[in-house]
Computed example of a mutant assay.
Amino acid sequence: MHLVHHPNVVFLHEVMASETKIYFVMEYVKGGELFDKICKGQLKEDQLIGAIDYFHSRGVYHRDLKPENLLLDENDDLKISDFGLSALRESKKQDGLLHTTCGTPAYVAHEVISKKGYDGAKAVVWSCGVVLYVLLAGFLLFHEQNLVGMYRKISKSECRCPNWFPPEVKKLLSRILDPNPNSRIKIDKIMGNSCFQNGFKKIEAPKSLDSHQIESLMSNVHTAFPVQPMCYNAFDLISSLSHGFDLSGLFEKEKRSESMFTTKKEPKEIVSKFEEIATSSERFDLKKINVGVIKMEDRREGRKGQVAIEVEIFEVTKRFNMVEFNKSGGATMEYKQFCDRELKPSLKDIVWKWQGN
């Protein structure tokens, strides 16, 4: 859900955990399920297809698209929910395919239930077709009391459209519900179809602010040290401390353990230590960027510009903090040399334990 930050996706605010449960704090969507309003003619097929196109550009495949997972906010805009069965592009096996049989039977593509492997994007296109059919018709396309009978219909792609479907819609659905995934129409072609051109507006996901933009916004707010630490919730703590429950690899390319440590020092003492290092090196300036974030910036120009290091301070408990620092500018080699020769040795007085050691 962090990867698919999009206006038509239920927003994930925070993740927390206890010893036995994980809690997702998500956007409250007031309008209820789209499924409940199908009969009122509230179709959101353009928003659905636009969001799916964005998912696939981020390497995310939902794999459980159905009207019950399509919600409406107070403005009747679509909000896609329930990513419990979703897969990432990295989940593919050596053959380049996904192999987990999952989803709601009436909406899954036949190649998913064939257990021979399937392309995530092509399978999701099929599910979109079934959803669009239901939104237009008001009833299920594949409906059988017997599951085997339903799968038989799906494998044959017995798509019989009601008489009131416009000819162009029937033609598009036949291309979406093509039993051959290799010849099935792709998302970009669906978006270019005349059925979606009238009134369709592709929504771009909001862009995250970079460190310079954040620094500019925060320049007139709380500029004095010490920095207040950010809250480090239980889920973050479990992910970083437990090798068996480390989910950071889903979102981060570099290991965090080499640049993360725990400390019993207060935030003002942590900031003071980094100020001391910056001063003694006679190279770096120290400045505040955001709540819980400070930045060390080299005055000298290196091979790839100035080496810059962002330091984040997280409060785990009142007497226990976690500190993480990462390169935000300059050459990686110069950054690593400074960390190994000066930064890490100078931090030994405040480090309780380096993560990963």
Rank of each mutant, 00 (worst) to 15 (best):
I52Q: 00
A121C: 08
L88E: 08
L85E: 13
L98F: 07
Y118R: 00
H62I: 06
G50T: 01
S57H: 07
D76V: 13
G96L: 05
H62K: 09
L72G: 10
Y61N: 03
L72E: 14
G50P: 06
L65M: 14
D119I: 05
E90H: 06
L88S: 07
S57W: 03
L48D: 04
L70Y: 04
A123R: 01
V125N: 07
H56L: 12
G96S: 10
F83C: 05
A87P: 02
D119M: 10
R89W: 05
L71M: 15
I49T: 14
G117D: 11
K92T: 06
K115F: 06
S86W: 02
D73I: 04
K66P: 00
K66G: 10
L70V: 07
D95S: 09
G50I: 01
V108T: 09
K122T: 14
D73M: 07
G59K: 00
D82I: 03
G117E: 11
K116C: 13
G117Y: 06
D73C: 02
V112Y: 03
D95L: 12
V112M: 14
L98W: 00
T101R: 13
L48V: 09
P67K: 08
K66I: 13
E90Y: 08
L88N: 07
K116Q: 13
A123W: 02
S57T: 15
P105D: 13
P105I: 06
G120F: 05
G103P: 05
G96Y: 03
T104V: 06
A106D: 14
P105V: 09
G59D: 07
S57A: 12
A121F: 01
V108N: 04
A106R: 01
R63D: 11
G120D: 04
S91Y: 09
S57G: 14
V124P: 00
E74D: 15
Y54K: 08
R89S: 11
D64G: 09
I113T: 14
E111C: 08
L78D: 11
K66V: 11
K93W: 05
V108I: 15
D82A: 08
Y54M: 14
I49P: 00
S91T: 07
N75T: 13
R58M: 15
L72F: 07
K116L: 01
Y107F: 14
E68Y: 04
S91D: 15
S81I: 01
G103A: 06
Y61F: 15
K92H: 06
D53E: 15
C102N: 10
D95C: 13
L78F: 10
L65Q: 12
L71Y: 08
I52P: 00
E68C: 03
L88W: 03
N75L: 15
H110N: 12
Y54F: 15
S81V: 05
K115W: 11
H99W: 12
T100S: 14
A51G: 00
G50D: 15
S57K: 09
Y118V: 05
A106F: 01
K115G: 06
T104R: 09
S86K: 08
L78G: 09
F83D: 12
D64R: 00
V124N: 13
R89I: 02
S81T: 15
F83M: 05
I52C: 08
E111P: 06
L72W: 08
P67I: 13
V125A: 11
D119A: 01
Q94I: 09
V125L: 04
I80F: 10
F83I: 10
I52F: 02
T101Y: 03
A106H: 14
H99M: 09
A123M: 08
T104N: 04
G120L: 00
K116H: 05
A123Q: 04
Y61W: 10
